[in-house]
Design a binder for these strands. Structure first.
Length: 551
RNA sequence: GCGCCUGUAGCUCAGUAGGAUAGAGCAACUGCCUUCUAAGCAGUAGGCCGCUGGUUCGAGCCCAGCCAGGCGCGCCA
């Protein structure tokens, strides 16, 4: 929609240059915006103000020339110069009506564009350590990552979802040992003393019991996995199940352990060494990351010969780059922002442009109940799990709430609000918009009114109320919203868009009867309703939220 | 101390690439409505966009400095 208007303005500028009304100098990029005020038209441009210094003429004079050209376009109702030199463009209602027609035609495809031109994007998210269940913070990252992947796909990118499994190193070892102690506890019936850094959650006991059921059964023979292997894989199963129930599936589960097994960690260190980015000091092996903008150099191999976590991370990111993605997205908890510098340093050290890397930081979630914070014991593994929250409020509300705010802003998640079937709950407000439309359509069907697949476009001219035009205009901006959400990697824009759409539709419904004795008007309004329902469903799908038929 | 994020209406938050008189929802106040499903309507009120300076035709947005809150600054993962 905006593209069409951009074209109109551009050709008016070209024409002015051709006719000598403007100098043929460099024309600035045409910026088209949607004015906040209705009186400023459907679109406006500040092109004249940008040209003023180059033309050395008052912006309003230039605006008048351009506006005259724009006004000649058949799609344009009128074109005015306003304020310091804005050009306000008012489109003919027929333009909006044809927009509605094209939305109905595109149906579930409406909202998809080819802005990404098939460029490959990898988005790595969640990547929680398999040492405990997913908590509420992981949930937010999961919702953001998954929805962003949907949005990028809709905007024409080729998206791969990836989960990096930290199945090597100290933490999973400790998990295995924790399970071993619990098993001992069960077998001996005596309480066992647990070291401070061991995992003490209930899930460890469950895994211990599972292990005993499976491998200590009488008459069992054959190979027995290590506690570590068993515990890690059991934890991953749980995580995968939680995610699946949260409607998230990954294309790739990438194992940290496999990096080591394939010798990729060594390869990466060797490559860095060849590039002169490695040195030894105090018995440890260092990556000279400060040469590439990091705060301090980083240890890869400790004096005791152990690798650091970062050593596998450099190998992992080297593999990502080798796969040929044009964009790498990492969704991290805000507590990881200190890692950005070293990863960027690595990419630069390997000779790559680090601007391909985009890191999205997810701020913490504060759970609230009726406006008061829910106390979250951080110690002893007593955190609120994603499972608890999605079981309590439902997946739809949970996902929507995670996506209602910018990722880098703190989120107050009110459990009671999320559950309530009340207008102040934005999830129900939006979903109900869809359900209500389905209900209207089936009511019409009962009355024998069917929505035709093909119709005379002139029928839509009955949609002549300002409110109706307003809804159509909002529908028309959906593609731009998806595109912007994709390019800026801000899924919350879609959630806001949907809340606004519902906020336009509900009042319209309240004031206007759709199914009436006026057959033409009924069809026209049904078509409008259908379009709203389609866009609501398309938007909700991007968020991973269902669009119910009934509520 | 250094780095990152945040600071916008009573509350929770939007604010498009620097544009015009800064918006929404909730809460509050006034008056209505009860429907194709109740999640509504009309109106009112509410603001030093953390503070100070700068950049320019124009700043909530960009720059510098301060203030406040959160997070991070290991040969931890």
């Amino acid at each position: 929609m905006r593209a069409a208007v951009t074209e109109i303005v551009r050709s008016a500028l070209d024409k002015a240059v051709r006719e000598g009304a403007l100098k043929a100098g460099r024309l600035p990029d045409v910026i088209i915006e949607r004015p906040k005020k209705e009186g400023f038209g459907d679109f406006s441009t500040n092109a004249a103000m940008l040209l003023a210094p180059l033309e050395k003429r008052p912006p309003r004079d230039i605006a008048a020339v351009i506006a005259a050209g724009i006004a000649e376009d058949p799609l344009v109702e009128k074109c005015e110069v306003a304020g310091p030199g804005f050009i306000n463009i008012f489109l003919k209602n027929s333009f909006h009506l044809s927009m509605l027609g094209s939305i109905l035609k595109k149906a579930e495809r409406f909202g998809t564009t080819d802005a990404g031109r098939g460029r490959r994007v990898q988005i790595e998210f969640v990547s929680a350590n398999p040492t405990g269940p997913l908590h509420i913070g992981h949930g937010r990252g999961a919702a953001v990552g998954d929805s962003l992947a949907n949005i990028l796909k809709a905007a024409g990118f080729d998206v791969t979802r990836e989960y990096y499994i930290n199945d090597a190193g100290r933490q999973v070892y400790t998990l295995g040992e924790s399970v071993r102690l619990r098993i001992k506890e069960i077998e001996t019936g005596e309480p066992v003393e647990f070291p401070a850094d061991f995992y003490k959650g209930e899930y460890v006991k469950e895994i211990a019991r599972d292990y005993l059921d499976k491998y200590n059964a009488p008459g069992r023979a054959g190979a027995t996995p290590t506690f570590q292997e068993f515990a890690c894989s059991a934890m991953l199963d749980r995580i995968e199940k939680d995610l699946k129930d949260f409607r998230i599936e990954f294309d790739v589960w990438y194992s940290e352990k496999s990096l080591e097994e394939k010798g990729l960690v060594n390869d990466t260190i060797e490559e860095l060494r060849k590039r002169g980015c490695i040195y030894e000091s105090e018995g440890a092996l260092w990556f000279k990351s400060t040469e590439f903008g990091d705060d301090k150099d980083r240890v890869l191999i400790k004096a005791d010969g152990e690798r650091t976590y970062f050593a596998s991370d450099i190998a992992y990111h080297r593999e990502k780059v080798k796969k040929g993605f044009t964009t790498l997205v990492n969704v991290w908890g805000a507590d990881h922002h200190g890692y950005e510098g070293r990863i960027r340093a690595l990419l630069k050290a390997l000779g790559h442009d680090d601007s391909a890397l985009k890191i999205i930081f997810i701020q913490l979630v504060a759970l609230m109940r009726n406006g008061a914070p829910v106390p979250m014991g951080k110690r002893e593994g007593e955190f609120v799990t994603l499972r608890q929250v999605m079981d309590e409020v439902g997946v739809d509300a949970c996902r929507f709430f995670f996506l209602m705010r910018r990722s880098d802003a703190h989120l107050d998640f009110d459990l009671e609000l999320a559950k309530s079937q009340a207008p102040e709950n934005p999830v129900y407000y939006v979903q109900y918009c869809h359900a209500r439309i389905r209900s209207i359509i089936s009511f019409a069907a009962e009355k024998g009114v069917k929505i035709p697949d093909e119709f005379d476009p002139r029928l839509l001219e009955r949609l002549d109320q300002k409110e109706e035009t307003g809804i159509i205009k909002h529908l028309g901006s959906f593609e731009e919203v998806v595109e912007r959400a994709a390019l800026n990697m801000e899924p919350h824009r879609v959630a806001f868009y949907l809340t606004e759409l519902a906020g336009l539709f509900h009042p319209y419904y309240n004031r206007n009867r759709v199914v009436t004795d006026d057959a033409e008007l009924t069809i026209a309004r049904l078509l409008l309703c259908k379009a709203v329902g389609t866009v609501a469903a398309n938007g909700l799908r991007l968020l991973g939220v269902t669009a119910p038929e009934k509520m």
